[in-house]
């Protein structure tokens, strides 16, 4: 079984803070990591490979440094690493990104594509479904359990108020959530191979035969008009006194506001 896992290198947004004076991001060496959901996607792919044989290819689109993310995946056990890297890909929104990843997937060949549900920097959760649409294959999103057999995949798909069990024929695309599994740590041998022996294959727009009108900025229907720090509300009052005095005032004020009855 040939599985493609799509991964993204992202800044670790948990560590990002805002300067209260200027309202801007404090960078303080925000590290780059493999997007957390994508590690769960890789873990599932490796698990399926152990069970059924085949090959796991990790695929990413990004700048040259995104190689680091691919090598980390390789150290966990991925066989091949492919980086889509070309200035012409820059500025892509989800439409253009899914086109680009989809064209690369066609070139690689696959029985199953697994993506993380969403990336922590963009939070769109759109790449998986749009790639599936581009490839004209079924998708199952928010996957928390996977079973494969008889050319089919059966998944538990998480809903807000429960879950559903869904069946699709292969090839198919899954987007997975963190409840699915616990990603393994890289093995020592894996690290040696990933960082010293294996090579990252780099593909440009020409390598995947991309239509230049469908990639990067030109292929993106949306654009960012502006960005800004969220505005503070700034109208509150701060109570004075010790714990008991403040509590007494608070209860009175909440009653005044009719919040407590």
């Amino acid at each position: 079984m040939n599985i493609i896992v799509c991964v993204k290198q992202v800044p670790d947004t948990t560590d990002v803070k805002i300067d209260p004076k200027t309202g801007t991001l404090i960078r303080e060496g925000v590290p780059s990591i493999v997007n957390p959901d994508d590690k769960h996607a890789l873990e599932e792919a490796l698990h399926l490979k152990e069970k059924f044989g085949g090959k796991v290819t990790v695929l990413s689109m990004g700048p040259p440094q995104a190689e680091d993310a691919l090598r980390e995946c390789s150290a966990m056990g991925a066989d091949d690493m492919i980086l889509l890297c070309d200035r012409a890909f820059a500025g892509a929104d989800t439409w253009a990104t899914s086109y680009t990843l989809g064209e690369a997937a066609k070139k690689i060949g696959y029985d199953l594509i697994i993506c993380g549900r969403e990336a922590i920097d963009g939070d769109t959760a759109q790449i998986g479904p749009q790639m599936a649409e581009h490839l004209q294959i079924p998708q199952i999103t928010y996957v928390r359990k996977v079973e494969v057999g008889d050319g089919k995949v059966i998944c538990e798909r998480a809903l807000e108020d429960g879950y559903e069990r869904i069946e699709a024929s292969l090839p198919a695309l899954l987007t997975v959530i963190s409840d699915l599994n616990k990603p393994r740590y890289p093995s020592v041998r894996g690290i040696v191979e990933a960082y010293q022996e294996k090579k990252v294959t780099v593909w440009t727009a020409a390598d995947i035969g991309a239509d230049m009108a469908c990639i990067g900025l030109d292929g993106s229907p949306t654009n960012v008009k502006r960005s800004f720090a969220p505005e503070p509300k700034g109208k509150g009052e701060v109570l004075k006194g010790d714990a008991k005095e403040m509590s007494k005032q608070l209860v009175e004020k909440l009653k005044e506001k009719n919040v407590l009855r």
């Binding site: 800044p11 947004t13 948990t14 990002v16 803070k17 805002i18 991001l25 922590i120 920097d121 963009g122 939070d123 949306t222 654009n223 960012v224 008009k225 502006r226 960005s227 800004f228 720090a229 969220p230």
Partner: peptide
């Protein structure tokens, strides 16, 4: 919200 909610972006 984008960038983990640290900034807001207006898209067209």
């Amino acid at each position: 919200p984008a960038f983990g909610g640290n900034i807001m972006a207006t898209i067209m």
